[in-house]
Write a protein that binds this DNA or RNA. Structure first.
Lengths: 340, 340
DNA sequence: TTGTACGCGTTATCAC
DNA sequence: GTGATAACGCGTACAA
């Protein structure tokens, strides 16, 4: 297939309207005075030729590409896709385009993508769920001195970077307090294998239970081998059915994400355990699956859109150099009480 | 915040290694013979300076950006995000980066984004779910003469463009035949307001029912005001509860997407109608929600990853001009029989 | 095997 | 108000 029709350049416009390319440039950018009649002639030529500036050439000299890179472990994750939507939505209005980069959730992938984006002269990089290893190794601290950088989650104390983070502490507390208020004393906790956010939540859970003098026995703590995907649903379901096939005094459980909570819900249904009568379940993330389950899931809302919005806003600030310090912006959580 | 560290250019490398930029360029691209010792000196300088070619400058002269634009109505849609993942995954391996463009599902958004991508000299554009209006108006036929273009779905007869499409016909037939084989005679059909794919499915449904001499009465045909989002779940649920609160002879229903099917399932549960005992439900799309419902949803699998893969492959073909004709590539469907 | 010089399409800096 | 001309960083005839 041949795609030969060449685009008109600024020279073509200049030739047709009988002026220099300098004047054409001025008309386009409207940054210097140009005679009204000349301007009209130029605009007519632009129209006639269907001329559009080549942004590559413009970027080369301006050293700005109006382009932002977004790094994300995987796009089809419900949590990530909503964040991306928000970031891109915000930046799109400001005439930025975004490069979508899937890293596969491993450090090498992130480094490779960052390299690729730097070579393409992006104006900034947003990393969703950056690898802890790269944060601690100083990789991102080095990067943020070269280019505007915003990290979403993955916060670590003392790292000189710009962070937008969820308030995992508050979210976990809200959920647990809700359960205690409902009269629950035997509250379980379900987490995935390794993730910074699971660690924070677990620490918070243990802390909370101790403070309220509620017991935590081995039966209360679930560590699933999986993480945040479909497999997790099955694993969670099995865990719950197994637990209740033995005997347990557990009457409520806090799950680290909605997949786990759905799994727990399905497990309870399978063994005829009523929810929330026999078992109260609280999820985390407020993804769409929490709204379509029956009954709909009580869950902690991260406000993912706000997270993305905040990241995009911060990015624009950094680009326009309005801010000279590293900020940590915390997005609040809300407990969404539904039917479980 | 100041990001001042300037990147080394090809000139810096040339100066440090005591050769001309031409030689450096040859070392980088490995396209002309260079003395082994010279090459070594250059490579050392590259290493020492941390030099990386500026792809903007390279693109400007080569007229290739290694960049593809992906247009999509909205990224958080389960169907779209899986397609995007596949497209980007495939192209990423070939060192392409992708611009993610959300169009909002309206013609103006699509035109604007296409314009933006052309100005950025992308090597090709993939449009997921293109607006019918722009297909019929000749917009995309014109575009495909200027740049490699692949349309995913939205196929219309006689349009000279490259399409990758789902076999809606086969998918619908598979689902209906399954129901008939189960002995169902009163089969309903649920669709959304306006979409080409709903139209095809409905036509197929009507055709099938007529061929099998099965009746279609007004109670069998649901047209929801919504489409493919959370609201649809509620609407579908209400439709089903209302229908069965009157009397109906319907024993099975084919839904145009999984959201509708989940809604129908929730509705049935609410009124104590057993699934599939009292009502069989078949969804469409095989999104993740069909796997986590209880019971899991019987649904038609589109093979979204294959759809994206095929689009990416076709794009690469077009770019390398291996193909001179417009092709329509049809991706097969499979009925996934689960619990409804 | 290597270097010079031009061009890619634009904006910025001078002159006039 | 307007126009040459030099950048931006790179690839590549052409010449040596």
């Amino acid at each position: 297939m041949i795609h030969s029709e060449k685009r008109a350049t600024i020279h073509d416009v200049a030739a047709m309207s009988g002026v220099s390319i300098t004047t054409v440039s001025r008309v386009i950018n409207d940054n210097y005075p140009v005679n009204v009649v000349t301007k009209k002639r130029v605009n007519e030529a632009i129209e006639a030729l269907g001329y559009r500036p080549n942004l590559l050439a413009r970027s080369l000299i301006r050293d700005k590409t109006q382009t932002i890179g977004i790094l994300v472990p995987s796009i089809e994750n419900l949590f990530f896709s909503e964040v991306i939507k928000a970031i891109d939505g915000y930046l799109s209005n400001l005439d930025y385009r975004t490069f979508l980069c899937q890293t596969g959730g491993n450090p090498l992938g992130e480094e490779t993508m960052v390299d690729s984006l730097l070579n393409r002269s992006v104006d900034g990089i947003v990393v969703v769920d950056p690898r802890t290893k790269l944060i601690k190794s100083g990789f991102y601290e080095g990067l943020t001195r070269r280019i505007p950088l915003v990290l979403i989650n993955g916060y670590n104390q003392g790292i000189r970077c710009n962070f937008i983070i969820n308030n995992e502490l508050a979210g976990t507390t809200q959920a647990l307090e809700h359960l205690v208020l409902q009269g629950h004393k035997h509250i379980g906790f379900m987490r995935g294998k390794k993730s910074y956010s699971y660690d924070i939540k677990e620490a918070m859970y243990v802390d909370f239970m101790n403070k309220h003098q509620l017991e935590i026995d081995d039966m209360h703590l679930f560590q699933l081998p999986g993480g945040n995907d479909l497999e997790t649903v099955k694993l969670a379901k099995e865990s719950i059915t197994q637990l209740f096939s033995n005997s347990t005094n557990m009457t409520a459980i806090l799950c680290c994400n909605d997949f786990m909570a759905i799994g727990a819900l399905n497990g309870a249904k399978t063994i005829g355990l009523s929810v929330p009568g026999g078992l109260s379940i609280i999820g985390y993330d407020n993804t769409l699956i929490s709204q379509i389950s029956e009954p709909p899931l009580t869950t902690v809302d991260h406000h993912m859109s706000e997270l993305g919005d905040a990241a995009a806003r911060r990015m624009v600030e950094l680009i326009s150099s309005k801010s000279a310090e590293y900020k940590k912006i915390v997005i609040n959580t809300d407990l969404i009480v539904r039917g479980t």
